Simulated scan of single mutants.
Amino acid sequence: MKHFFSIIGGMGTIATESYVRLINHRVKIARDQDYLNYILVNDAQIPDRTAYIKDHSKTNFFPDLKDDVLGQAKLNPDFFVMPCNTAHYFYNDLAALTDIPFLHMMRIAVHKFIEEYPKESKIGLIATEGSIYDHLYEDEIHRVRREVEFGGPEIQPMVTKLIYRDIKEKGIVEGKLYHQILQKMHDDYGCNVILLGCTELSLAQEKAPDHPYNVIDPQSIIADVSIELALKIRNGMDPKEACAKYMYK
C-alpha cells in the first residue's frame, strides 16, 4: 500500500472508532479509491493511562505503545497519529523512536484555539484526571500564554462519570450530562470556549452536538489535519514537508 498513515488507537476503542468514522465521512469521495489509506492499530490491551500517571506503581503503558510504534515504523507510514489525549504523556519518548512525523494532537488543538479565538485569554478544560493531574493540556495552554479554567470540585466527578461509567463501561453517551458540564463551565466559571481534553468527550460532542457552547474538539481537529496531510502527500508532497506545518515546538 502506498502513502498511508498509522493510527495508534484502542485508548479507548469506541473513541478510536469515532476518529476513524470522522476521517472516513469527511473526506470527499466519488469512488472507493478516494478514501484515505491508513493502518489502524487498535491495541485495546494498553494499560490504563490515568492509573499509571497518578500512581507509578501501576502498570506502565509506555512499553505497549513503544511496541506498536516500532512495529508500524517498519512499514514506513507517512506519519503517525494517536487519537488519545492522555497517552500523549509519553509523546516525546514515542516521537523519538523514529524519524517518521508524529502528530501531537494536544498541541495542534491548542494552536487551533489561538487561531479561532485570538481574543480569549482563557479556556475551560475538561479531561481525564490523568491529563489534569500531569498538566498535559495546562502546559500546552500556558505555552501560548493563555490561562486554564478547570471549574469547581463538582466538575471532575461529572466528567469522570461521563468518560468512564457511561462511555468506556457502557458504550453510551449521556448527552444531558455532557451538556450540563458545558453549561456549568460556561455559566458558573465564565468559559466562553471549552476544550474537550479526552477523546471520549470528543465522542460525546459527535453524538450530542446540539448545544450553544463553543468547544475545541482535538479529535475533530486531528481528523481534519489527517485528511489534509494524507491528500497533500498523495498528490506528491514529501511527508515531512507536509507535516512540518503542524510540528509545533
Rank of each mutant, 00 (worst) to 15 (best):
residue 128 T to S: 08
residue 207 K to G: 09
residue 144 V to P: 00
residue 221 I to Q: 08
residue 184 K to M: 13
residue 145 R to S: 13
residue 125 L to Y: 06
residue 148 V to K: 10
residue 137 Y to W: 05
residue 189 Y to G: 00
residue 207 K to T: 08
residue 189 Y to C: 08
residue 152 G to S: 13
residue 181 I to T: 07
residue 201 L to M: 04
residue 152 G to N: 14
residue 190 G to M: 05
residue 162 L to W: 03
residue 212 P to R: 10
residue 238 D to E: 12
residue 207 K to A: 15
residue 204 A to M: 09
residue 222 I to R: 01
residue 196 L to N: 03
residue 139 D to I: 12
residue 185 M to V: 07
residue 221 I to C: 01
residue 164 Y to G: 06
residue 195 L to T: 04
residue 206 E to K: 14
residue 237 M to D: 14
residue 171 G to M: 00
residue 144 V to G: 09
residue 201 L to I: 06
residue 120 E to Y: 12
residue 177 L to I: 07
residue 131 S to H: 02
residue 142 H to M: 10
residue 166 D to A: 03
residue 148 V to L: 03
residue 164 Y to D: 09
residue 233 I to K: 12
residue 208 A to C: 03
residue 204 A to D: 00
residue 168 K to S: 07
residue 167 I to M: 01
residue 215 V to A: 01
residue 187 D to G: 05
residue 163 I to V: 06
residue 142 H to V: 10
residue 132 I to F: 09
residue 141 I to G: 05
residue 190 G to W: 00
residue 157 P to S: 01
residue 193 V to M: 10
residue 189 Y to E: 09
residue 219 Q to G: 11
residue 136 L to C: 01
residue 180 Q to E: 15
residue 165 R to W: 11
residue 217 D to F: 01
residue 228 E to D: 15
residue 197 G to H: 06
residue 146 R to M: 02
residue 226 S to A: 15
residue 135 H to D: 14
residue 157 P to G: 03
residue 185 M to Y: 05
residue 237 M to G: 11
residue 209 P to R: 11
residue 130 G to C: 03
residue 191 C to I: 07
residue 215 V to H: 09
residue 152 G to V: 08
residue 124 G to L: 08
residue 204 A to I: 09
residue 128 T to I: 03
residue 204 A to Q: 03
residue 180 Q to W: 04
residue 143 R to W: 11
residue 183 Q to G: 09
residue 231 L to E: 13
residue 224 D to N: 00
residue 159 V to S: 01
residue 195 L to W: 07
residue 204 A to H: 11
residue 186 H to P: 06
residue 165 R to G: 09
residue 220 S to N: 14
residue 144 V to L: 12
residue 179 H to V: 03
residue 225 V to C: 09
residue 195 L to H: 10
residue 207 K to R: 14
residue 230 A to P: 02
residue 217 D to V: 00
residue 197 G to K: 02
residue 153 P to C: 04
residue 222 I to Q: 08
residue 228 E to H: 14
residue 208 A to I: 05
residue 148 V to E: 06
residue 168 K to E: 01
residue 181 I to F: 00
residue 126 I to S: 00
residue 161 K to P: 03
residue 160 T to H: 10
residue 146 R to P: 04
residue 134 D to K: 13
residue 234 R to W: 13
residue 143 R to G: 13
residue 136 L to M: 00
residue 139 D to T: 15
residue 221 I to L: 05
residue 178 Y to T: 04
residue 139 D to A: 14
residue 129 E to A: 15
residue 221 I to D: 00
residue 153 P to R: 11
residue 197 G to A: 04
residue 166 D to W: 04
residue 159 V to C: 00
residue 153 P to G: 00
residue 189 Y to L: 11
residue 147 E to D: 15
residue 231 L to K: 15
residue 123 I to G: 08
residue 141 I to A: 03
residue 159 V to R: 03
residue 124 G to D: 01
residue 200 E to A: 04
residue 200 E to P: 09
residue 205 Q to G: 07
residue 174 E to I: 12
residue 215 V to I: 05
residue 170 K to Q: 15
residue 181 I to C: 06
residue 171 G to Y: 06
residue 223 A to Y: 06
residue 129 E to S: 14
residue 164 Y to N: 10
residue 202 S to C: 02
residue 180 Q to R: 08
residue 152 G to D: 15
residue 159 V to Y: 07
residue 149 E to R: 12
residue 217 D to I: 05
residue 141 I to H: 04
